[in-house]
Design a binder for these strands. Sequence first.
DNA 1: TTGCAAATGAGAACTATTATCATTTGCTAT
DNA 2: ATAGCAAATGATAATAGTTCTCATTTGCAA
Lengths: 142, 142
Amino acid sequence: MDKPQPGHLKNAGLKSTVPRIRILELFELGQERHMSAEDVYKHLLASGDDVGLATVYRVLTQFEQAGLLTRHNFEGGKSVFELNQGKHHDHIVCLQCGHVEEFYDAAIESRQEKIAAERGFAVHDHSLHIYADCTKKKCPYK
Amino acid sequence: MDKPQPGHLKNAGLKSTVPRIRILELFELGQERHMSAEDVYKHLLASGDDVGLATVYRVLTQFEQAGLLTRHNFEGGKSVFELNQGKHHDHIVCLQCGHVEEFYDAAIESRQEKIAAERGFAVHDHSLHIYADCTKKKCPYK
DNA sequence: TTGCAAATGAGAACTATTATCATTTGCTAT
DNA sequence: ATAGCAAATGATAATAGTTCTCATTTGCAA
């Protein structure tokens, strides 16, 4: 077999239920890396799964707390989730099409540490979002 | 006289109306630097001004577009505004006490521009929030 | 002043998310 | 396997923040 292991769920202290397995599958096997609750809900409905929107919200929050997913609060009011695969990165978000691109920059990371330390803060975590317009052909909305 | 000049409004192409003048005063003369729409609304009501919440939202958005205010989308779902005094800065937020400290780092700013340009994006704006714990005595919650 | 477009206020509408609660489901001990 | 029961679910109501609608008011130019 080649299907996602529900082990992730058990390890996280979560019962293996149908909605949880489906949602985890969607993030692990699906093509979209960043999805809002609404996105997840629509994908599941399209796949013939019968889940409620409330369950999607609950499960996403549980997955976030369990460390399986990371939540991002981008502009536009809705939360977006992505699989937490260990490696930290920041985001560039296209204001035209909503396309999200990831990046990591060691210089920025270390400057942040330094700045926080200088002011007497111990960094817990940070969020850096660059909002921009695609200037390339990749943006379908221009 | 020593009152706020409505010139700011006219220069921004906005008619000088009572609600706009009051809101601008609140940011220019008030003691709070970061305020949500609800915060502004309550302050105005407390001052005896009779403005509607819808007007507050409209005016804040107009001020943002005119460059008079800057909007921040912090975690927690609500937008927070602050007077735009020319100098861009980012924020460190203490996870214990919620204290917000501002900082500016030229190295981070230029790295961001470079990263975006390399990927074919024209930066519109960005948000960098460092979430940390005060390690100094300044935090009253530790 | 008068006129009229622009701005306002009250409340409806909307969007994202959370809470409620009766019903269903996954697991555990038979 | 199976019964029991807590945990999870789905439908829907409720909430929070914000935007929209539209009748009335206001700022300002002639």
